[in-house]
C-alpha cells in the first residue's frame, strides 16, 4: 500500500481527498500547513503528497522547495491541488519540483487520472 500525505488548510478538502485516495488504496496522513507537512516528512517520507498552494504558516510552493532540499526529499511524488490556474503559476510549481498539478474544483476521476499520469497508480 502506498502512502499519501494530504496537505491542505481546509478540513473539508482533506476529508474529500482522503475518501477518494483511500478508495484508490492509499494510506493517508494529513497536515494543515506546509510547516506541519515538513515535520511529518522528516519523520517519514510518504510516496505521494497532495499539496494545496495557499496555506497559513508555510505555503505549498515554499514547502515544496524546502522538501526537495531535504535528505530523501526528492523521492515523494508531489501533486499540487489548488485553485491557482494561471499558466504562470503552473510553471512556477513545476519549476519548484511538482510532478503533477490539479486545478480545483476536482472530482474523483480527475484525482485518479492525475495520480495515474504521475505514475502513482
Amino acid at each position: 500500500m502506498k502512502s499519501c500525505l494530504i496537505v491542505d488548510d481546509s478540513r473539508v478538502i482533506r476529508k474529500v481527498a482522503r475518501r477518494i485516495l483511500e478508495d484508490l488504496n492509499f494510506s493517508i496522513e494529513e497536515a494543515g500547513d506546509g510547516l506541519e507537512a515538513l515535520k511529518q516528512c522528516r519523520k517519514e517520507m510518504p510516496d505521494a503528497i497532495l499539496l494545496d498552494w495557499q496555506m497559513p504558516v508555510m505555503s505549498g510552493v515554499d514547502f515544496l522547495k524546502a522538501l526537495r532540499q531535504e535528505s530523501g526529499g526528492e523521492r515523494p511524488v508531489v501533486v499540487f491541488c489548488t485553485t491557482e490556474n494561471d499558466v504562470s503559476r503552473i510553471s512556477e510549481a513545476i519549476k519548484a519540483g511538482a510532478d503533477e498539478y490539479i486545478m480545483r474544483p476536482f472530482d474523483g476521476e480527475i484525482l485518479q487520472s492525475k495520480f495515474a499520469e504521475a505514475g502513482l497508480i
Binding site: V87, I90, I94, E100, I102, F106, I110, K114, E117
Partner: peptide
Amino acid sequence: FEVQKGLSIHRLI
C-alpha cells in the same frame, strides 16, 4: 474539467 482527464500537466501547458 475536461483538460484534466487523460492529460498530464506537461501536455496541457
